[in-house]
Design a protein around this nucleic acid. Structure first.
Length: 247
DNA sequence: AAATGTTACAACCGCCGACCG
DNA sequence: TCGGTCGGCGGTTGTAACATT
């Protein structure tokens, strides 16, 4: 008994959307708003599955989408965000108004990857590309070691040994491969972009009592500009959160 | 001009977490 | 607490458009 399909596979169209289908979808959403995607196709008179409608609307038909080429500023922002967040395209997209996760993902795979490689950087780790693989394995072990030494830093992210088939490169791995010595200076109260890119983890070398650590845990998303109403769902210094940091 | 290779991107697939009864 | 449903996510695929031979 497998999972039930998201929609009835028979009697649904697949492939490219026609103008007529687009118009039906736009008209329906303009009239009724984004409601239940599962029931929307039938209500809108579309022979599509709900997921397909949602994707079409979010990635292509939404009125607030910015079409056209990415600017140099957007490029650099994507690179910076990716170096911190890994392949969390939806989070990255939330920082680029008018851009969708799918668009950014495609742009990354077709353009930015190549750009980084031409700069001599590994697109996954953002580290200089080295010929010998020993460098990579040491980067990975430092990630694991950092995670082991600072369990609070793994918060909610799949570990490098995650069983999830989804994340062949874990976000945690990407993050710590870039920032093996991550910490936040207690002297300053906010993050600058250079701090975001140049942290160090030495603080984790010294044991901190759990209550004290929690008391001094800050929300990394918050400092990146995410808020609870957006991508940051932490209410307090919850250990479930994406990347809380020891100050 | 035709064949072949490459690129760009829309769309699909399967999985996961949140939510609800 | 549990199981089902749904929305959302990231990885992957399909294919049209363009470039090269």
């Amino acid at each position: 008994m497998g999972r039930s399909p998201c929609c009835e596979k028979t009697h649904t169209n697949k492939g490219a959307w026609t103008k007529e289908e687009d118009q039906k979808l736009i008209a329906y959403i303009n009239a009724h708003g984004e409601g239940c995607w599962r029931s929307l196709p039938k209500a809108a008179g579309l022979l599509r599955c709900g997921k397909s409608c949602r994707l079409r609307w979010i990635n292509y038909l939404r009125p607030d989408l910015k079409r056209g080429n990415f600017t140099e500023e957007e490029d650099e922002l994507i690179i910076k965000l990716h170096s911190v967040l890994g392949n969390r395209w939806s989070v990255i997209a939330s920082r680029l108004p008018g851009r969708t996760d799918n668009e950014i993902k495609n742009y990354w795979n077709t353009n930015i990857k190549r750009k980084l490689i031409s700069r001599g950087l590994d697109p996954q780790t953002h580290l200089p590309i080295k010929a010998d693989s020993a460098e990579n394995s040491s980067a990975v072990s430092s990630v694991d070691e950092a995670g082991a030494r600072c369990p609070d830093l793994n918060l909610g992210l799949p570990s490098s040994g995650s069983t999830s088939p989804k994340s062949s490169t874990s976000s945690t791995g990407s993050f710590f491969a870039v920032y093996p010595n991550f910490h936040k200076s207690s002297a300053s109260s906010s993050w600058t972009s250079s701090e975001v890119l140049l942290p160090s983890l030495e603080a984790c070398g010294t044991p901190v009592s759990a209550p004290a650590a929690r008391a001094r845990t800050i929300c990394f998303c918050y400092h990146l500009g995410f808020r609870s109403s957006e991508t940051c769902s932490c209410q307090t210094s919850s250990s479930r959160h994406l990347l809380s940091l020891i100050k």
